[in-house]
């Protein structure tokens, strides 16, 4: 493997690990608000790592620009979507879960 492929592999592994954490959290957490924590946070970092890692293996500048564009797009839309969901749930009167 070339050095850039190794770098990409590391980034992909990190991103996939974070992504799996988010999915598992979504499954395990007790209520909607706690699920927000795992889903909203892991998504933005996981996609940055995976798509950012892919930049190292491409030699085409158009592909690199597109990858950067997707990263920025998701970086701005993901938290906005998460917040929109939260606000809708809050207005609907969904109560947070408490331990005990």
């Amino acid at each position: 493997m070339e050095w850039n492929e190794i770098l990409t592999a590391i980034f992909l592994a990190l991103g996939v690990l974070i992504s799996l954490t988010g999915s598992l959290g979504l499954l395990r957490m007790p209520d909607f608000y706690t699920r927000l924590h795992t889903a909203g946070k892991s998504d933005s970092l996981a996609q940055t790592f995976i798509l950012g890692g892919l930049i190292f293996v491409t030699d085409n500048w158009q592909v690199a620009v597109r990858l950067l564009m997707i990263i920025l797009l998701l970086f701005f839309t993901a938290p906005t979507a998460t917040h929109a969901i939260t606000k809708a749930a809050r207005l609907d009167g969904l109560e947070p879960w408490r331990r005990g």
């Binding site: 992504s19 979504l26 996609q47 995976i50 798509l51 998701l74």
Partner: peptide, 25 residues
């Protein structure tokens, strides 16, 4: 609740974008 489902769908959307990009590569 419906909101859990939307949250899951939203997370799925982000994943699909990454999957499509990875599949292309």
């Amino acid at each position: 609740s419906a909101y859990d489902r939307i949250l899951a769908m939203n997370a799925m959307g982000t994943k699909t974008v990454v999957l499509v990009a990875l599949f292309g590569f």
